Simulated assay, not measured.
Amino acid sequence: MRAHPRHTPDDTSASASETAPPVSTTPTGSAAQRTAETAPTTAQRTPPDTARATPRPADSAGRAASTPPANELGDFLRTRRAALSPADVGLTTWGTRRVPGLRREELAQLAGISINYYIRLEQGQSANAGDSVIESLSRALRLADDERAHLYALARPAAARRPRPARPETPSSGAVRLLESMPDVPGLLLGRRNDILAWNELGHALLAGHLDFAAPTDPVHRPNQMRLLFLDPHTRELYRRWSDEAALAVASLRYTAADYPDDRSLAELIGDLSIKSPEFATLWARHDVRLCSRGSKLLHHPEIGDVELHYEAMQLPDTQGQRLFTYTVTADSPDEDALALLRRR
């Protein structure tokens, strides 16, 4: 979980105890009112420089792109707001609604903040929101723990930093030794950009047997799990529920990207996948967030058939985002027999 240092809101009107005017539940009458509610403002179309943003890819000369930063905070708030209906939060409405989900004034009222301050947050015009504001918005939007941590990261923009050089990551030597010491447990080491930094023989055979076992040792041409998932037909066929796996992977990448906004290579990966994979671009635009630390995977392996795996992801300290993944199966199950067959091959 990310740490949440305390800050003071930059607008005294943002106190969590302050409420917006009562929400009208009657249909809006005039066309001008309808246009004002649905049309984006100039600030929405061109977010100001104060917004926290996912970094932009570098140009051909290696310089950071000069396009305005995306309003990541506003995008996240809008997508979460659109995902809630008035009925979800106990509001009663009449007539036809012209916007999906909650209106801005409804969310502001639920969170106990002024509508003007909420609009500034959504348009990226207010930085360093206080803890009380973030907590109130988290409760009003019914955010899960991962989404709440992500909101903290987006609402607390880091000081402007130069993009990090696009250098390959160095795998943790301790993690590599650990992988080598457990030949009966499939495992791999992922970097923050989802580059595969190392794997053991069983992890390689289980997840990417069609690739060269030594591929992760080449810092320039290492396989990347996100590229494999979206661009490699063999990997796509490996997952019995590919759509679920893809959605989870993108939500995890979105979580990581907020932690490393100055990582140029990470930004280039996101940009490249958005161009080459319409499915990735669609999932990225949803702004779903998930910290994937454990779960299950359903595979259809070309050698051992269907198998269900349980994975654990361990964040390694002092490695700038490296994660060690291990995969296990239920004891005395057909999955255990299948994995044993793969070990003997």
Rank of each mutant, 00 (worst) to 15 (best):
S138M: 04
S138P: 04
R139H: 15
R139F: 05
R139Q: 15
R139D: 15
A140N: 00
A140V: 11
L141D: 12
R142W: 08
L143N: 02
L143H: 10
L143K: 00
A144G: 15
D145W: 02
D145F: 03
D145T: 14
D145A: 15
D145M: 06
D145K: 02
E147Y: 02
E147T: 06
E147H: 01
H150K: 02
H150T: 11
H150D: 06
H150R: 01
H150Q: 02
Y152T: 09
Y152R: 00
A153Q: 09
A153P: 09
A153H: 00
A153N: 09
L154I: 09
L154Q: 03
L154S: 10
L154V: 11
L154F: 11
A155R: 01
A155S: 15
R156D: 13
R156Y: 07
R156M: 13
R156G: 13
R156V: 12
R156H: 14
A158S: 14
A158C: 12
A158P: 04
A159Q: 07
A160Q: 07
R161P: 10
R161T: 15
R161F: 10
R162C: 05
P163W: 00
R164M: 12
R164L: 15
R164K: 13
R164G: 13
P165L: 01
R167E: 15
P168V: 00
P168T: 04
E169Y: 06
T170S: 05
T170A: 05
T170W: 05
P171E: 06
P171H: 03
S172T: 07
S172I: 00
S173F: 00
G174E: 05
G174C: 00
G174Y: 00
A175R: 03
A175E: 05
A175F: 08
A175S: 03
V176D: 05
V176C: 11
V176S: 10
V176N: 05
V176K: 05
V176G: 11
R177C: 11
R177S: 14
L178R: 01
L178S: 08
L179N: 03
L179M: 04
S181H: 03
S181C: 10
S181Y: 08
M182A: 09
M182E: 07
P183C: 13
P183Y: 08
P183F: 06
D184Q: 07
D184S: 14
V185T: 15
P186G: 00
P186Y: 02
P186C: 03
G187Q: 02
G187E: 07
